[in-house]
């Protein structure tokens, strides 16, 4: 039992490592699904840093997802950049945008912050639609190549699956390192009482902006991964509804937990797979499930795991 307590993380890691060959049985479809799940995990973990730990509401996370995706798509499809280079440029670009926006926008509180983030999401989407010559407009951007690193093309879905999940693990590790560092503890202090934190001489705006930039860069990275897997981009996938979807994944999985988003993303991406025969009911069902989670499981799906976990070890310790 003690061993399990110390090395539990091997279990999910083993699951991720062996999934394509075991459960998915080499099926590109199931690997493909988990690629989308992985992309959304990156998005949601970033949002968790921002909302769960720092308490800053965002209803426009898809904006940074879009900037990353379109930076990658445009640079590789139109200007012949290497996907890796385009991805890095996208991350830098998104980082600069987030840094410039961060200070003024994060000075806003609660609903005003929600509105400002939503507005930025709309601005990005309307610009994508408006600037047809660059983005392909509402009809979409075609002919985006598969991802490749140093000449090695990752067109095989299983290879790409490992690539995406390697990045997911790096993102999660980074996020854990951040929240467990003194920096992360300051974020939590800002969350619980921003005025007090400021009274202690913390430059709260600086901290909030930094975490905002980090979350946005993660989103941009997710966007690049998304682009090369789809091979095609359209603004429909980056609207406020996508932002809300990410928000829902976060609360469903468990906010302020880093691991919760994995469950949330899994759940939200698998739900349509389970309900495709009753698609008219899907909207109602997803709403009801979310209500049940919010009322009965304030810590989300991850809360159930921790509850079971604690019970197990409470017994074992006796």
């Amino acid at each position: 039992m003690k061993l399990l307590k110390q090395f539990w993380w091997i279990l999910p890691l083993a699951f991720i490592a062996f999934y394509p060959v075991t459960l998915a049985g080499g099926s590109p479809y199931w690997s493909g699904l988990l690629i989308f799940v992985g992309i959304y995990v990156i998005l949601t973990v970033g949002l968790d840093l921002l909302m769960g730990y720092t308490g800053q509401i965002s209803v426009g996370h898809a904006a940074y997802f879009a900037i990353g995706a379109y930076a990658s798509g445009i640079l590789t499809a139109k200007y012949g950049f290497s996907p890796l280079g385009a991805m890095v440029i996208g991350m830098v670009l998104t980082g600069i945008v987030a840094w410039a926006l961060g200070r003024p926008v994060l000075a806003l509180k609660e609903y005003y912050l929600a509105m400002a983030t939503l507005a930025f999401n709309e601005i990005v989407v309307t610009l994508i639609i408006g600037l047809e010559w660059l983005t392909g407009g509402a009809s979409g951007l075609r002919d985006i190549p598969s991802f490749s690193i140093f000449g090695l093309v990752l067109s095989n879905h299983v290879h790409y699956y490992y690539f995406v999940w390697a990045i997911v693990i790096i993102v999660i590790a980074c996020s854990l390192a951040v929240v467990r560092s003194p920096f992360g503890r300051t974020l939590v202090a800002i969350h619980s009482d921003e005025v007090a934190a400021r009274a202690f001489g913390v430059d709260t705006a600086k901290y909030k902006t930094r975490i905002f930039v980090l979350a946005s860069v993660f989103a941009s990275m997710a966007g690049s991964l998304f682009t090369h897997y789809m091979g095609f981009l359209a603004p429909d996938d980056f609207g406020v509804l996508t932002s809300i979807n990410i928000l829902v994944m976060l609360f469903l999985g468990g906010i302020g937990t880093i691991f919760g988003p994995i469950l949330g993303a899994f759940f939200m991406k698998l739900l349509p797979e389970l309900t495709y025969q009753i698609h008219d009911y899907e909207l109602l069902l997803s709403g009801l499930i979310l209500i049940i989670v919010l009322v009965f499981m304030p810590k989300g799906l991850f809360g159930i795991f921790t509850a079971i976990w604690e019970k197990m070890f409470a017994k074992a310790d006796k």
Partner: peptide, 28 residues
């Protein structure tokens, strides 16, 4: 009412959940 003391984030997502549910019901 049952979750009125939860954080503002929870409340926002709750109203989003209500919106999904009502929209789903209207569709049916």
């Amino acid at each position: 009412k049952p979750i009125q003391n939860a954080g503002i984030g929870n409340l926002i997502v709750m109203t989003i959940a209500i919106s999904l549910t009502l929209r789903g019901a209207a569709l049916l």
